[in-house]
Amino acid sequence: MNPWETTSSNLPIRHDLEVQPLINASSDDQAVQLFLNQETTSGAPRFAATTRSNYEKEFRRLLWYISSLDKSLRQLSLEDAKGFVAMLNRPPLSMVGFSKRPYGAADWKPFVVKKNWAEGEPVLSPASIHLSITTIKGLFNWLQSVGYVSFNPFVLMKTDHQERRLEAFKRKNRALLIQDIRHIFQTLSDDESRLWNDEKALRKLQREKWLFHAYLYSGLRLSELIRNDTSSLQSITVSDKALWKMNVIGKGGKPAELPVPKPFIEALYQYRSSLGKLPAPSSLVPEPFFFSLSGSRPLTSRAALHDIFKGLMERVAVSLVAQGQLTDAARIRASSVHWLRHSFVTIGVELTNDVAAMSELARHSDIKTTMGYNHQQLSRLAETVESISKHIEDNTY
């Protein structure tokens, strides 16, 4: 066979030359780990810990799947990729578990569902399947670029057209409207009146209320409050005016001082009181911002806070459906904790027209921001935050 082939452009291509990979990996598992362990030019990890963990979960599923085919990453075909996507839509029941187990354990399962899951229900949502395919495409693009595989079998994989349109809608509209916030406050108020003599239910309600207020009135990222503690809160006086500020560590390990308004502090006090704790936390005794219902152990899981938030949103949506407000219900059901950050920024920009101040408060990575504010800068930002909180209260309560 002639090793040379002439293309339509008359440029010869050699097929008998072996391409040496640019990575030293003797197995698929090692190749995947090299992808996950990439570093930036400054030597920092390319992927944040949470992102890395999520990627690794998707790759473990892929490696399990190809091992069931007795193939390697290099041997995957387009048909194999289609089979993997079909498997994501309907995993074998033998591979579905109800609790997370360490990878490599005898009872490890590539798919984990909640205890109330019933056979026949989807294991992964369309959005999760879309994310899985996108993540694996990225892995194969990298493996191809370093010469470990010759092509990307997932390159032609597409998610359902309607699902992609829904995802595009969510990306463009990831902020709650004032009317949504009004609905949520109304539900919290109604539930508080209804549950006034149920101590456990009230503790749960106060936790939901605190979570909602904490993120809506601060613009914090979900992880920034979870990995922080109450010692980060400080009361200071600027020009005879008392202010509250919080020290946080943002993306990329960047420190920041952020002002927080009265509704944030008041909701925290009410939540702590419901647990039998002193309303005002001590700066000398660090405590987590969220606890179990008994108040005996900290809640530091993103998934736990996500479930708390979604539980509240579902109650609000059910109430709206009963009132015939289906559009509002659908939007609230689609929301996540991160939407509260977008809501904070959106309301702030519309209200103050001070893009610079909102950029500082949001700490967007593409804005050159002074992270160590002096007291006068903090006072200016505090006025912006207070105006946002007043606007929300004036238009929702």
Rank of each mutant, 00 (worst) to 15 (best):
T135K: 04
T135R: 04
K137G: 14
G138T: 10
L139N: 07
F140Y: 14
F140S: 07
N141K: 15
N141F: 15
L143P: 06
Q144V: 10
S145R: 12
Y148S: 03
F151G: 09
F151E: 10
N152Y: 04
N152C: 07
N152S: 09
P153C: 03
P153S: 03
P153M: 02
L156I: 11
L156N: 14
L156S: 13
L156Q: 14
M157Q: 09
M157C: 13
K158H: 11
K158G: 08
T159D: 10
D160L: 11
H161M: 13
Q162H: 13
Q162K: 12
Q162C: 10
R164M: 15
R164N: 12
R164Y: 14
L166T: 06
L166N: 07
L166A: 06
E167P: 06
E167T: 08
F169D: 11
K170E: 06
R171L: 13
N173D: 01
L176K: 00
L177M: 12
I178L: 13
D180R: 04
D180L: 05
D180E: 10
D180W: 05
I181H: 03
R182S: 04
I184H: 05
I184R: 03
F185R: 12
Q186W: 11
Q186M: 13
T187P: 02
T187H: 08
L188M: 09
L188C: 08
S189V: 15
S189R: 15
S189W: 15
E192T: 05
R194G: 07
R194M: 07
R194V: 05
L195T: 00
N197G: 02
N197E: 02
E199Y: 08
K200E: 14
L202P: 02
K204G: 13
K204E: 15
L205F: 04
L205Q: 01
Q206W: 10
Q206H: 13
E208A: 06
E208Q: 10
K209F: 08
K209L: 08
K209C: 04
W210V: 01
W210C: 00
W210K: 00
L211M: 11
L211E: 01
F212W: 10
L216N: 02
Y217V: 11
L220T: 01
L220S: 03
R221D: 01
L222G: 06
